[in-house]
Amino acid sequence: MSQTPSNYFLPDPSPWPIVAVASVFSILFGAALAVNGLFPGGIFIVLGFALFSYLLFSWFGDVVRENMAGLYNERVDSSFRQGMIWFITSEVFFFLTFFGALWYLRNVSADWLTGKGYLAGTHEVLYNQFFSVWPRTGPGLKEEFTPMKAWGVPAFNTIVLLTSGATITWAHWGLKAENRKLLIRGLIATIFLGLLFVTLQAWEYQEAYQQLNLTLKSGVYGSTFYILTGFHGMHVTVGAIMLAAILGRSFKGHFTPENHFAFEAVAWYWHFVDVVWLGLFIFVYML
């Protein structure tokens, strides 16, 4: 690393932010059309993702070049770190929303539907055959389904993700000890475990749809099960892509024991996804 500049780095005008907005707009515009069964929706989504991938290479490419040129001082590094922490904070609240919804639907809405307190009369008239158990649908859905068991694939997946948390720490040790072989092995193991997790999750979804008749339409159990595990799986996938980028940069030897914020940011994100899974395993599968 060259000499640290004393001034805070100010980037020149950059086309990437507005390209990022255009690509996300295209994806969401396409999605709004697609959910209504309108044909060009899919095209906008595909174009949006293509533009978004191009953008990621370009924008992060700029950042990597600036970093390698030694334009960033500790203040800039600290801005990146704090930014990542607040981003993960917002993600925490995103997941808390769905955990909160699960809690509400299992407890509060159960009280309303089973006629607790002053609602007893309403319950008697409207749904006197409906009693609150979990897992359940609601008083208006009669279709049967089998809930997902915790002690099969989900328990194995818990071990997979926890192990991946260990392997990424192993890679970090390698990085700090300037042992590039350990770094690369650790990263490859982490990516492999992440992909294994996603594959097993996809297999589990297939089982649920084909064997258990557990679908998005299976009342609140199906709704909360799929939205929580689905958003989590999406985050694991994004995390695996980020890890792959870090692996590529490790092959190029970009990281030094002093300067490897990108690695740490991805590691934080990975641990965050890990913790969310523990919550999922307890509140969605076990309880």
């Binding site: 959910v35 209504n36 929303t97 919804a101 509400y104 639907l105 509060v108 809405s109 159960a110 309303w112 539907l113 359940r136 649908t137 609601g138 008083p139 208006g140 859905l141 679908t215 998005l216 339409k217 009342g219 609140v220 159990y221 199906g222 709704s223 909360t224 799929y226 939205i227």
Partner: peptide, 26 residues
């Protein structure tokens, strides 16, 4: 919340639908 609304609208989930055990109050 609006994501759940989108799912209720198009993918048959029951977050805000009492018939499926959900609750508009949520």
């Amino acid at each position: 919340a609006v994501t759940m609304l989108l799912f209720d609208r198009h993918f048959g989930t029951s977050f805000f639908n009492a018939a499926g055990g959900g609750d508009p109050q949520l």
